[in-house]
Each structure stands twice: as structure tokens, then as C-alpha cells.
């Protein structure tokens, strides 16, 4: 307890200083190194995790923006397609209407021309028939010259061909 024993003090010095050197070399050095390495590893991986989180967040934001943009594009092109189709339909209808009108006009002109041709032929035919009939009736009563005169007079008296 309190009795003085220098031998014990000397032994304590020897044991303590010996332990200090032995532990310093064989225990504290590797333990402190591993602690430091681990602390660094933990700090690093936390940093990396934070970085990865930031990256992921950025990627998510990017893809979200991309999706919104794609949706907008799609809507726009749909709208465009719709208006284009509408336009096309209108054009086609217009064109078809025009074509139809043109064809009707054409047909009408054709009919008119044919009518006139038919009338003219009819008139020639009528003249010929009249000449034939008259000549058969009159035969010798009239000479060729008189016939012609009478007929032409008659023809001239015929109403004009309606256009």
C-alpha cells in the first residue's frame, strides 16, 4: 500500500516502457492504420453515395424532361397530321368538285354540239327529203332552176337553228 518499495517502481518502469514499445510496434500501429483506412473508406463511400444520388437525381430529371418533350412532340406531330389530313381532305373534295363541274360542262358542250350537228343533219335530211318529195310530186312541173329557188326560199323561211 504505502510502504516504499523502489524495486516495484523500477519494475513498473520496465514493464510500462517495454509495453509502450512492444504495443507501439505491434498493436497501435496496425490498429490506428486500419481505423484511419476505415474512416477514410466510410467517408469515401458516403461521398460516392452522395454523388451517385445526385447523378441519379439528375438522370431522373433529365429523363422526365425528355419524356415531357417527347410527349409534346408527339402531340404536335399528331396535331400536324390531323391538320394535314384535314387540308388534304378539303383539297381532294375541292378538286373532285371542280372535276365534276368540269366534266358536267364538258358533257353539256358535247351535248350542245351533238344537238346542233343533229339539227344540221336533220335540216339537210329534211331539205333532201323535201326536194325528193317535191320533185316526186312536181317532177316535171318545174325545172331544176326553179326548184332550187323555191327550196332555198323555203329554207330561208325556216326558223333559225337555236343555238
Amino acid at each position: 500500500m504505502l510502504e516504499i518499495n523502489p524495486g516495484l517502481t523500477i519494475w513498473t518502469f520496465i514493464i510500462f516502457i517495454g509495453l509502450l514499445f512492444i504495443l507501439g510496434k505491434t498493436a497501435w500501429k496496425p490498429m490506428l492504420a486500419s481505423l484511419k483506412t476505415r474512416e477514410k473508406a466510410i467517408a469515401d463511400s458516403l461521398d460516392r453515395a452522395e454523388q451517385a444520388r445526385a447523378d441519379a437525381e439528375r438522370l431522373i430529371a433529365d429523363s422526365k424532361r425528355e419524356r415531357v418533350k417527347a410527349e409534346e412532340d408527339l402531340q404536335k406531330s399528331l396535331q400536324e397530321g390531323r391538320t394535314y389530313a384535314e387540308q388534304m381532305r378539303k383539297d381532294l373534295v375541292e378538286k373532285a368538285k371542280g372535276e365534276a363541274a368540269r366534266m358536267i360542262e364538258h358533257a353539256r358542250a358535247e351535248i350542245q354540239r351533238d344537238t346542233q350537228n343533229a339539227l344540221r343533219q336533220l335540216r339537210e335530211e329534211a331539205a333532201d327529203l323535201a326536194i325528193l318529195a317535191t320533185s316526186k310530186l312536181l317532177d316535171e312541173n318545174m325545172d331544176e332552176e326553179r326548184h332550187r329557188r323555191v327550196i332555198h326560199k323555203m329554207i330561208a323561211e325556216l326558223p333559225a337553228i337555236p343555238e
Binding site: T26, K29, M31, S34
Partner: peptide
């Protein structure tokens, strides 16, 4: 007392050595 100082040192050394080996 000297014996128990040595005894404690040996226990301490063994425990720390095991830990240090594991740390390596």
C-alpha cells in the same frame, strides 16, 4: 504486484495482438 503487472501486460498484449491481426 510485479507478477500482476506482468500478468496484466500479457493479457493486454494478447488481446491487442488478436485485434491487430484482425485489423491487418
Amino acid at each position: 504486484n510485479v507478477f500482476f503487472l506482468l500478468f496484466a501486460s500479457i493479457i493486454l498484449f494478447v488481446v491487442l495482438r488478436i485485434s491487430a491481426m484482425s485489423a491487418k
